[in-house]
Amino acid sequence: MTVMAAVLFAGPIIPPAIVAMVPVVLAIVGNLGEKTVRWRMLSIPLGLLTLGLVLVNLSGLAEALGGMSIRVVVGIAISVGAVLLWTVFALTNRTALAARPTMDARMWTAMMMIGGAVEIMVFMPLAASTGLLNLTKIGIRWHDFAPVLLGSFILAVIGSIAGSWAWTIAAKRIPVGLAGQLIVTETVFATFFGLIATHRWPTWPEALGVISIVCGVVSALKVLQTPSSFKQVSAKEAVDMHAPASQAKSPH
């Protein structure tokens, strides 16, 4: 919802570029909280991912920022809010899963989908009051809208349900600081799909950006396979990390 609002204010270029920084922000904030991966081992993947994201979005951002206005500034602020919300969700989700180690990933995914459905139900009255649901009245015929509706359904099944299930499994098995870096591959896929849709080859910055992102993901995977990348946590520290605040401190 925040991304949609950001696009309405700032256009289709700036918000996706800002939201694309979620993996980098999540990697930094996640490792600040968990402190499980050595920063020295994270520096190369983070550097490559950041460089790649900047290069992929460079031309679009330069063009979009050329028409800076109060409306665009509001869109940028909403985009930053979207990044913060995504980061809070990922960290909260990780904490909740850590407190429930026996939770089945399919059950957890189903609960998230139910939560999303409740949010949609809350949003429906607002959408109805603003006329967003009156497709026929704003010139969109149902038979023309059917392909969009079908595409949305497929995206919901593959992107939301299957994606959430995969994220739940990853969140239970690897640190958030590394899991966040791996989801940057969505930017690569989005770039490829965008090039196919516009029937063109990538520019040199876009091509170098994709290569940099892929190298960053490969570096992150290498960190996962290197035992020395992870800090050793004592048994007492492990208990303190997962214990409630009221139990972690001694009454004395």
Rank of each mutant, 00 (worst) to 15 (best):
residue 80 V to L: 13
residue 119 E to M: 06
residue 171 A to Y: 04
residue 63 E to G: 11
residue 126 L to H: 12
residue 154 I to L: 15
residue 160 S to D: 06
residue 119 E to H: 10
residue 84 L to G: 13
residue 81 G to A: 07
residue 82 A to C: 15
residue 71 R to S: 07
residue 134 N to M: 11
residue 101 P to R: 08
residue 176 V to C: 11
residue 68 M to Y: 07
residue 173 R to P: 02
residue 83 V to T: 03
residue 117 A to H: 10
residue 150 L to N: 13
residue 132 L to K: 14
residue 154 I to D: 06
residue 141 R to C: 08
residue 137 K to E: 11
residue 127 A to P: 08
residue 152 S to N: 12
residue 133 L to I: 13
residue 127 A to T: 12
residue 137 K to A: 14
residue 144 D to Q: 11
residue 88 V to I: 07
residue 157 V to F: 14
residue 135 L to T: 11
residue 161 I to E: 10
residue 162 A to D: 00
residue 162 A to E: 00
residue 153 F to H: 10
residue 144 D to V: 12
residue 112 M to P: 01
residue 65 L to T: 05
residue 151 G to L: 14
residue 140 I to H: 10
residue 135 L to D: 04
residue 128 A to S: 11
residue 86 W to H: 15
residue 74 V to K: 00
residue 53 L to T: 11
residue 120 I to H: 08
residue 89 F to A: 07
residue 86 W to G: 09
residue 126 L to E: 10
residue 98 A to E: 13
residue 108 W to K: 06
residue 53 L to E: 11
residue 50 T to R: 12
residue 84 L to A: 07
residue 96 A to V: 07
residue 81 G to P: 05
residue 129 S to A: 09
residue 129 S to P: 08
residue 50 T to W: 07
residue 108 W to S: 15
residue 176 V to M: 13
residue 77 A to V: 06
residue 84 L to M: 11
residue 164 S to R: 03
residue 114 I to C: 02
residue 144 D to P: 12
residue 52 G to V: 00
residue 106 R to C: 09
